[in-house]
Simulated scan of single mutants.
Amino acid sequence: MSGGPLPSGQNAPTVLRIVLGKRLRELREERRLGLSDAARVLDVNQLTVRRLESGQVGFKLPYVKALLELYEVRPEEAGEFLAMTEQANKPGWWHSFRDALPDWFRAYVSLETSASVLRVYEPHYVTGLLQTADYARAVIRAGFPEAPAEAVEQRVELRLRRQDLLDSPDAPSLWVVMEEAALRRFVGPPRVMRTQIGRLIEALERPRITLRILPLAAGAHPGTSGHFTYFRFGERELQDIVYTEVGLTSALYYDQRRDVVPHLETHTGMSQLAAKLVPDARAYLTGLQKEYDR
């Protein structure tokens, strides 16, 4: 992680907690107060204040009230802040799936749930937000061959639950660049692939979903280093963030401009190349679906 606000472990915060932490930092800086001033009022060390401002710990209401008084926040604004604090302390919906969520992926689900724009590059599989249940089950079984059936089904349920955000009134814009290899890789029997391709065809009808297919003929390109997801948010306090996986058991979350911009430019370039080489994704998918009928 490059200077970002997101831990990848057990205490991965909700986006609201990150937003409130940054607002607390802004209020402190507006008053020209240092970390030591806030720490003195709370009777804690400066590291605790820093972790509070980065959203890495839960907000204790007495702490927040004391800081708002120190920063001379107006009563009506303080009331709104405290109400948001109570909301931020509530666990995300994914908390009930904690046994199915790797530590390093918990922050991802929080970001995904709150993003206004998602840009995804998928070289290996259909992206999780567009997977059918049978396809997801086959992918998960391949990744966790020793897992009991109950654990597999819990992961499938989590993946399908994540897809609910696409049907919400404030659904994000989802822009996916997918390698042709991901669509030609058999995941389960042909019937699973036929249904999965059908799901992608249906997704093309959604105005907030863009799907680009990068054919094998594209050859080598900047994105071949691996899967990544780019997040953009409506909240002014949150900068763009990029998620990349590292091996099989960890991930990195970047929020520094020097790291985020190259991923954004790469995604845009791949999308333009894909649109040029496969200008009609629907026609391509329809033809591919027929191949799985044979």
Rank of each mutant, 00 (worst) to 15 (best):
A147H: 06
R51P: 01
Y135F: 10
R257P: 00
L211T: 12
L118N: 06
P262H: 04
R257D: 11
P75G: 01
L214H: 13
V260P: 10
G55P: 07
S54P: 05
L42Y: 11
Q256H: 09
A281D: 06
K22Q: 14
E30Q: 14
R282I: 10
V278C: 11
T268I: 05
Q154I: 06
A217C: 05
M84D: 15
L238P: 02
R208P: 01
R294C: 03
S116T: 04
A83G: 10
N11P: 00
S8Y: 04
Y121L: 07
V19W: 00
Q87D: 15
L130G: 14
A220W: 10
S225L: 02
L70M: 05
S8L: 10
D99N: 04
L47N: 05
T244E: 10
L288T: 14
R194G: 01
L166W: 01
E205C: 02
P145N: 07
E80V: 15
V187E: 12
A107N: 05
T266N: 15
V41W: 06
P91F: 02
Y243F: 15
G143P: 02
R17N: 03
L70D: 04
A115K: 03
L82Y: 01
T85V: 06
P148F: 13
A281R: 08
G223I: 07
A66Q: 14
L214Q: 07
R258A: 12
L68V: 00
I213L: 09
G219V: 07
A147G: 03
R191K: 04
Y292I: 00
P145C: 04
H263L: 02
A12G: 13
H267Q: 14
D240N: 08
L70Q: 05
T224N: 08
M270T: 02
P5E: 14
E235H: 09
T266M: 10
L166Y: 00
T249P: 00
Y108G: 15
L24R: 13
K90L: 07
D134T: 07
L214A: 07
P169Q: 04
Q272E: 04
L101Y: 07
W175M: 09
R141V: 05
V176T: 08
P279Y: 15
G55H: 13
A274F: 12
F144S: 14
E153P: 15
Q289I: 00
E112L: 06
R141P: 05
P5T: 12
Q56E: 15
V246P: 07
E146N: 13
P148Q: 05
E146H: 08
L24G: 02
I241K: 08
D259C: 02
D170T: 11
F233Y: 11
V44K: 08
W175L: 12
G219C: 08
Q46E: 12
V15Q: 09
P207R: 09
A220F: 08
M193N: 02
P102R: 13
A283H: 03
G219D: 11
R28A: 11
E153Y: 03
V192Q: 03
T132C: 00
Q46S: 12
I209M: 03
T286H: 04
R199H: 09
